[in-house]
Nucleic acid binder design. Structure first.
Lengths: 469, 469
DNA sequence: GGGTATTTGTCCGTATGTATG
DNA sequence: TCATACATACGGACAAATACC
């Protein structure tokens, strides 16, 4: 057999590596049958005009990887391989990532989830990061506490008591990298695969997807003015229900006290659990803040989920679970081998950020900013559309729904795009997207300035009611 | 003849000088007879895990001073010294670095998972963090790419190709906050609740717990010298198998090529998937690193898991999945509503850290440090215990197992504790902890310095074989 | 069929370029 | 700049297996 290899001395890749790769490939493709003898070191070194040791180095590597076996003073042979033809050689496709710029220019994007960056206290955050880097040097290297750093958990427990009327111990707090991971942990905690989950309809699709991916059966429970319809929940035989009582997503109502009590009663009777997602409770624009559901929970039937994504930064990836005491034992049993997923740097920086008071200041400031934006949006909408638009869910949060009776969703969104404004289709929040009312669009206002909001709404008016003035 | 020299890379004295002095002393005392052949440069460099050139430098010095004579192409021999004993050897006064506190508080903790912090490039890491804070200000606020930042994924794909022979596209890379989350995502991807999982026995309990918490049935597959026993796997009807081919955890063997092929063949025949956890492939102590299983996977049946926990920092929380192309569609369907869990700051900082070349340098350096510690541990153990201990899994990684036939595990661990040394019980890695061989203990060496390792092993000797000398 | 020349893997010391601090 | 350490390359020496007369 005549094997020809090409060794290029000018290549940056070492010669012995080139040779090694050539052989490996040839063996894998089956071009060299199993058990056959390879060209001797001397032969090959002569043929390729390279040193014997260079050839030897290549053979040694193949030997170490098990491709060859050596019979000393006799020869080197390809190892007996089961079925190398499983490995047809394919040219590596090293294609460059291309970020395709598409579509028309968008000037005003009412995307939900965008946040206000204009007033973010960058300096203070950097100080906190650097403080963590300097003070906690060694600690940042290691695996930390499984539930999260005790200091941060204490601060959180304290914050939750002050801001949300939620009395809990730092022991009950578990840090996660987001609400979705919190949900995943809960699914694992209760072994929810195959189980029914009571779920708000409409509700947050990001959480619904997690339940579904864990094999849960979603039992859609409709949402009334008072919040989740507990009567419907009672008819279902779900033992776990997911709710957003402070500000229903996406409809925006606040669950009434009466309904909260009813829900807690249900949980107690069924020995079920209520998952309370308090995702944007910091942002209420009218009336007294209503305490969290967990704050009313005396029987340990509520699992509370909080997050820094809205209040602070989505990009920071820091959320938390507050478990009832009765579930801590189960949690520790099931997750004793789990590592804490939030970076130590982030934990310590956040801890420092809270301790310095910068966090409280930031919340205060950002709340006012969103309040302003919210007011601007409401005012703009009612002055632009008057009776032609109904605003839904304007009491809290960073988004609202618009009901424009004149047109369908696609039409509304399309004509907005033509005016370079993005508004969003809320259909995905319905378990059955078909049942989403056909005139609804969703507007998030977190990422736009006041003047942008005003300009955006003006363009929407032109798009939806051209020539109206 | 068995000559043992100790080279300390951390000492200010150059290695070749240390070696030179050791030989000079040994020749002068007559411990090496005149005219005898010295260990060859290759031999010694391999034994001490240092470069051949370093040994050569030492020999050259001895040669120049007349202690050695060189027979070219044959070997180096000690010169014929007439009366060397005219030069009585004096013990150098090696001032021991006093361990200030000799109380029972001092502990040598052979914990697996601790890492070497003494040489962590803090400055470079801080630079990367600050660079990310400055350059990416706005971006850090927002939700990023769902799979992770494209730039970092490209760098990872490139690194995997260079370091692990794994050709993949950035599109196939998904960032996670840890191997456990990677496993959770895979469970969700395939809806594994209730399904059988082929799992190495013994194997990594942290991953087993995740499977179990997702409702999977663990099917323990035993591990032989060649790695996972594929014949057993075939008898099971599992469609998914979890393996650690580069360095089996905890036993430490490398899966042979033949067995790798057999495993791939199984996956192809069963249309199953192999989950390859390449958790510490960076640390091999002999020869070139062996390419990953995924690198041989031409049929898209291998899911690769990597992590920065070992190579970089456990506290950073950054791992990744490489999915075969055929699974990308399913992934995008199931996880379209998921947010990326790794903090933007961490992603951009790591990206900068890699781009600046600091990462490659760090890996290089840290690998050497671990190599050194590894060597120290092996040497200490064999000189302290000799035939009384068998070392298992010493080819790679940051830990090894010790088989001490004389006593049971509890006894070994207890008596070590009394000498203020912590060694660990590996029983939890067995699916049935009862079946763990009773004389095994686990020693991780990542977090201890050379002198700590030596002192720790000495104490272990006193604990386990009191009065042996 | 037994000695011999050749081939073989494996070992040996060495030279050069380069990365690191 | 300079010392140190390593990766990559080189050709010679040797003993055992093999081929050949």
């Amino acid at each position: 057999m005549e094997l020809t290899f090409f060794i290029d001395k000018t290549l940056p890749e070492p010669m012995y590596i080139q040779l090694y790769s050539s052989f490996k490939r040839t063996i894998e493709t089956g071009d060299i049958p199993s058990g056959s003898k390879l060209p001797s070191i001397r032969q090959l070194s002569a043929q390729l005009n390279i040193s014997r040791n260079t050839v030897e180095a290549a053979y040694q590597q193949l030997l170490a990887e098990g491709y060859l076996i050596s019979k000393p003073k006799s020869g080197l042979f390809t190892a007996d391989m089961a079925d190398m033809d499983l490995l047809p050689y394919q040219k590596p496709v090293h294609q460059e990532q291309e970020l395709s710029q598409t579509g028309p220019e968008i000037r005003y994007d009412f995307q939900y989830g965008d946040i206000s960056s204009e007033r973010f206290p960058f300096q203070a955050w950097k100080r906190s990061i650097n403080h963590a880097l300097l003070e906690k040097g060694e600690e940042l290297l290691l695996y930390g506490d499984k539930q999260g750093e005790a200091r941060l958990r204490c601060q959180l427990a304290d914050y939750l008591y002050r801001a949300r009327g939620l009395e809990c111990n730092a022991d009950n707090v578990i840090l996660t990298t987001g609400t979705q991971q919190s949900i995943s942990l809960i699914c694992q905690l209760f072994s929810l695969a195959g189980e029914k989950i009571g779920f708000e309809n409409p509700g947050y699709d990001g959480v619904r997807a997690v339940f579904e991916n864990h094999g849960c059966k979603i039992d859609p429970i409709s949402v009334k003015d008072e919040g989740l319809c507990v009567d419907e929940l009672e008819k279902s035989n779900a033992k776990i229900v997911y709710v957003t009582p402070s500000h229903q997503f996406p409809l925006g109502m606040v669950m009434s006290i009466q309904n909260r009590l009813k829900l807690l009663q249900w949980a107690s009777k069924e020995e079920g659990y209520v998952i309370e997602d308090d995702y944007d409770s910091e942002f209420r624009y009218s009336g007294q803040p209503i305490p969290s559901l967990k704050g009313m929970d005396r029987l340990g039937r509520v699992i509370y989920l909080g997050t820094f994504s809205k209040a602070f930064l989505p990009g920071i990836r820091l959320s938390y679970i507050v478990l009832p005491k009765s579930l801590l034992g189960l949690y520790r049993r099931k997750f004793s081998a789990y590592n804490q997923p939030v970076s130590q740097l982030i934990q310590h920086a956040m801890s420092q950020f809270i301790e310095s008071g910068d966090f409280d200041r930031h919340i205060k400031r950002i709340r006012k900013i969103y309040q302003d934006k919210h007011k601007t949006l409401i005012t703009s909408i009612s002055s632009s559309f008057g009776e032609n638009a109904k605003i839904i869910g304007e009491k809290a949060g960073l988004h609202l729904l618009l009901d424009i009776p004149s047109q369908g969703r696609e039409s509304l969104i399309d004509s907005a795009v033509k005016k370079s404004v993005l508004v969003y289709d809320p259909a995905k929040y319905w378990t059955d997207p078909e049942s989403c009312p056909s005139n609804l669009v969703l507007l998030g206002f977190g990422g736009l300035s006041r003047s942008e909001i005003e300009a955006g709404v003006e363009l929407l008016k032109q798009a939806w009611f051209p020539g109206s003035d």
